[in-house]
Design a binder for these strands. Sequence first.
DNA 1: AAGGCCATGTAACCAGTTACATGATTCA
DNA 2: TGAATCATGTAACTGGTTACATGGCCTT
Lengths: 185, 185
Amino acid sequence: MALEHAILVSLLEQPGSGYELARRFERSIGYFWTATHQQIYRVLKRMEGDGWIDAREVAQQTRPDKKEYSVTAQGRSVLAEWLHEPIAPESVRHELAVKIRGAAFDDPVALIREVERHREAHADRLARYLAGELRDFTGPEAPSAPDAGQELQHVVLRGGIAYERMTLAWLDDVIATLHRLGPPA
Amino acid sequence: MALEHAILVSLLEQPGSGYELARRFERSIGYFWTATHQQIYRVLKRMEGDGWIDAREVAQQTRPDKKEYSVTAQGRSVLAEWLHEPIAPESVRHELAVKIRGAAFDDPVALIREVERHREAHADRLARYLAGELRDFTGPEAPSAPDAGQELQHVVLRGGIAYERMTLAWLDDVIATLHRLGPPA
DNA sequence: AAGGCCATGTAACCAGTTACATGATTCA
DNA sequence: TGAATCATGTAACTGGTTACATGGCCTT
């Protein structure tokens, strides 16, 4: 459970509406925490009720009005408290690995296509991460003296990049293994 | 949702009781799918009701009786069907990354200890994986001509090893970054 | 006129977690 | 005697997913 905390972090980085948060969860924040708009609206309501955030109605001419949320002092201290708590080592859920072991009881070669699809998805994600890194951290437009927030965002992004590179290499290994089990008979 | 399928795979590899499954979910299978005994018993019951598995009462002298489950023909075909369905790219949930970005709004140095704890946990896990690899796949006791099931188990384990190595390197990067943001003033 | 984006929600459901419960045997 | 292991469960709760719903503006 950390959606509340992910939202607090995101709103501290930049206040915004539920809709905007939902979009961020498809981008930057979404690289390490996912959430749908339904879930976000529900949690925002609870957080507002608990006094962690407050809303400001923003009227817009061309677009529908929106509620812009910001983190309250109380929200900040809830976040600080959470940051000081140790977290349990994460539990893994790797569906593709289940399928790979399951392939022993079906046709290993039939899985190759699926694994290749995943390989493509990860290659895409890596490309997006690298583009983001160039834009925000290592390119000519990037700040020459990044602040703490930017340094931390960058190190998290480097983690995403490392993860995608590792995954690509592993999926190549998987594909080669599946081929070897195939019909070369 | 794949606990059912993970159970089917595990029971195809080796029939067993709920208790035994729970132990496997702390070991081999647990490297890529976690589940507690409570959840396992609940799901086993449903799977039995749906005819995917069947139970055989096994009386034991010294230990309590147990129900040994095996996969039925129907269970096998359910698994095969699932294997042929494409799966959505997994959604990430990386709590530590949320904390790292959150550290910008608190004390980055205070996070170092926590990150080091995680580093240790991952180093332990890597050691266990490597020991398992040596025992089952690359050591002198390992089969010289592994079958498809063993090849696939090995490639999944290699994925776990690659993941832990990547994570260790990244956590070192994180620790160095947190230090840099610290008091060297 | 149709489809996409902005913006916000409700309701039902399902999967997973946490707490509680029982009881026998084996080992230190 | 007390802790660990084997063995199986119930109940309450929480977090997350899926389906459904509304409505205006902008672009093609």
